[in-house]
Design a protein around this nucleic acid. Sequence first.
DNA 1: GCGGCTGTTATATATTCTATATAACAGCCG
DNA 2: CGGCTGTTATATAGAATATATAACAGCCGC
Lengths: 125, 125
Amino acid sequence: MYIEIDFDSEEAYYMQLRNRIIEGIATGRIIEGEALPSVRKMSEDIGINMHTVNKAYTLLKDEGFVKVDRRRGAVVSVDSDHILDINRLKKELNITIAGASCKGISRDELITIVDEILKEYGGEV
Amino acid sequence: MYIEIDFDSEEAYYMQLRNRIIEGIATGRIIEGEALPSVRKMSEDIGINMHTVNKAYTLLKDEGFVKVDRRRGAVVSVDSDHILDINRLKKELNITIAGASCKGISRDELITIVDEILKEYGGEV
DNA sequence: GCGGCTGTTATATATTCTATATAACAGCCG
DNA sequence: CGGCTGTTATATAGAATATATAACAGCCGC
């Protein structure tokens, strides 16, 4: 589990960690059923506080990417509530696409970018 | 210019205002060349502090949605640097799509959502 | 020039968020 | 029991957010 935190970034550490883990799951680098390093080990590995790691894990749990097992710790387990997921996605994409539309980015360009990103993540099983 | 701030939202006021204005430009409710209400008037209209409005206007200026004219105030003037815009868009979409991919949302569903949103904003001139 | 309108800047204050630190607790396993 | 989980509690520091009051510089119409 190689994760790096950019200490110069303006993005919160716990958010960076959460994002790297989601990316890891999406690329298949981290797989369903795999246990994340314990909050203490992860905090040592990447050089941030234990509570900051815990905050990221708790967020991932709340967002349905991880389940907590008393013994094994935070285990990757993606919980999909399709309708809810779709609605959240719409909200997230709304402003981004509004801005892109103002800037004159075309539908084709948008789709191209989506496909580019999906090439990284959609990785056919 | 009817804009409402959700005081119960966890989203920062200045960010809400910035987003409502971008949506307004995207839908055509606010048009290129139009002056936004002065920071003082806007702050009265929507019930937040003048400095918070100023922060939103300054952000919109930095993001290239608005230019400041000494007399007329903040005037809608979208500045497009296509390559830069595309790169910013990629970054913004990256995590969102990674999460969607984890949740099993298909390419078709993604495109459908993008098109739904574009129907609001892409509004053929 | 004066009054009135712009955005902008300066100070100060309160609250919340982020991050760290130290410490302890409950649960489970070998 | 010792060692590993996540979790909680408390305290502290700094940054971000939001408000308040006040003032400044620039430009217009009168």
